[in-house]
Computed example of a mutant assay.
Amino acid sequence: MGDPERIRSILAFVQEAERLKDTLRSGFTRQGNPESVAEHSWRLCLLVILFEKELPGLDMLKLLKLCILHDLGEALSGDVPAIHQTADNGARQMRERLDLVTLCKPLPVDLQGEVLALWDEYCEATTPEAIFAKGFDKIETMLQHLIGGNPADFDFAFNLGYGRERTGAHPLLAQIRELVDEATTARAKENGQL
């Protein structure tokens, strides 16, 4: 049997993390509904799971943890669309980390440390798992833009430059990116953007 206080604290955190379901991104689902950060994180994990055979030697559990946790801080302050992100000397990242610290307060100390360490690892992108988490994060976003019920003025051409550093960090990511860029180029041409 588990420690009742530990169980309560984990459940309290999970209830607070539910806010991510209501935190909207700038993308749209296929039916034109605003996409939530939770939906993005779910599909990012699905994408990673499906490429497991192409990722030998990676710690898949760690990679999935990074994917699940990478945007968790957005549950409090929201998402900043890539098209609106500016060089802010890390202010957005600091705010998101502080929000994550606040969100993690109900957790037992060991789990607080684990969540924050994984989030920091994702941000630093120096481990193979974090490199893939960041690259697949960008790819999932671009894939969603391709099938989303986007507004008429949606800027498909923006995606052709989006996340290049992250998707170019490994040959597999670059190969996937090439296919996504082909589809994005076609959509941009259809919309008179290229």
Rank of each mutant, 00 (worst) to 15 (best):
L50T: 03
N191F: 07
E178Q: 13
L194I: 14
C123H: 08
N150Y: 04
L11P: 01
L118T: 02
R177F: 00
L11S: 10
G27E: 13
W42S: 06
M94S: 14
I83F: 07
R30G: 09
C67L: 04
K105V: 08
P108W: 08
Q93S: 14
I139E: 05
G149Y: 05
S77Q: 10
H170C: 01
T184R: 06
D99A: 07
D88C: 11
V109K: 13
L69D: 07
E54P: 02
G27C: 11
T184D: 02
G148A: 05
M94Y: 03
D79V: 11
V101W: 03
G90K: 05
L179C: 08
H145E: 08
L98A: 13
Q93Y: 01
G78F: 09
D71P: 10
G135H: 02
F154T: 04
Q85M: 14
G148T: 04
L98T: 07
F132V: 09
E178D: 10
P128V: 10
T184N: 03
A183P: 00
F13K: 10
L44H: 10
Y122V: 11
A82P: 07
H170D: 15
L103Y: 03
R166K: 14
K21V: 09
E129V: 08
I131Y: 04
V180P: 06
V115K: 01
T29I: 07
D3Q: 09
A188D: 04
T126W: 00
G163F: 02
K53E: 15
E5H: 09
D155G: 01
G192M: 08
K138Y: 12
K134V: 00
E35R: 15
I176K: 00
G32Q: 08
A133D: 09
G2E: 13
Q112L: 11
D137I: 02
L47I: 01
L118F: 13
L107T: 06
Y122S: 07
R30L: 14
D59S: 09
L47S: 10
V48N: 06
L24Q: 12
E178R: 12
E114P: 01
R187G: 01
G2S: 14
A152H: 04
Y162H: 15
P108M: 08
E54K: 14
H70I: 09
R6D: 10
L111H: 08
P128I: 09
N159F: 12
D110V: 12
S77G: 15
Q112S: 10
T126D: 07
M60W: 04
D71G: 07
M1A: 14
L118P: 00
D71W: 08
D88K: 05
P151Y: 03
A188H: 06
P106I: 05
E140Q: 15
D153Y: 00
L61K: 13
S77C: 11
E74L: 11
F136I: 04
Q144L: 05
T141R: 03
L107K: 04
A183D: 07
L76P: 05
L72A: 13
D110Y: 11
H70D: 10
F136E: 03
E74K: 15
D120S: 07
G192W: 04
M142A: 12
E114K: 14
R8H: 11
K65G: 11
I68D: 06
I7G: 03
